[in-house]
């Protein structure tokens, strides 16, 4: 649940999603579910020359399993809190 919880805090933030097929999409994170499927709005493809078909796409639903990376703005992550959350998760699993 940690990653779901984490990505929920990124809603309405701009992220760059790199898919496993190397497509990189920049967009505003609209929503995320527990499978980490992502919905992006106002997307733009970083490599429009290579993937021209994405030029006309405004928003997109990405299946979570196809995501390789999500690039985040450093400032929107509370690292100390994330550390705590990680420890809590590990704790609850141990129980």
């Amino acid at each position: 649940m940690l990653f779901f919880s984490f990505f929920k805090t990124l809603v309405d933030q701009e992220v760059v999603v790199q898919l496993k097929n190397d497509i990189e999409l920049k967009g505003t994170l609209q929503s995320v579910d527990q499978f980490l499927n992502l919905k992006l709005d106002n997307i733009s493809c970083t490599d429009t020359k290579k993937y021209p078909h994405l030029g006309s796409v405004r928003n997109i639903f990405i299946r979570g399993s196809t995501v390789r990376y999500v690039y985040l703005n450093k400032n929107i992550v509370d690292t100390n809190l994330l550390q705590d959350a990680t420890r809590r998760e590990a704790m609850s699993e141990r129980k």
Partner: peptide
Amino acid sequence: QIVTDDPYNEDFYFQVY
């Protein structure tokens, strides 16, 4: 699957954030 009645434990980061 998502909803929990124990948000502090299972949704800690989001809640506190």
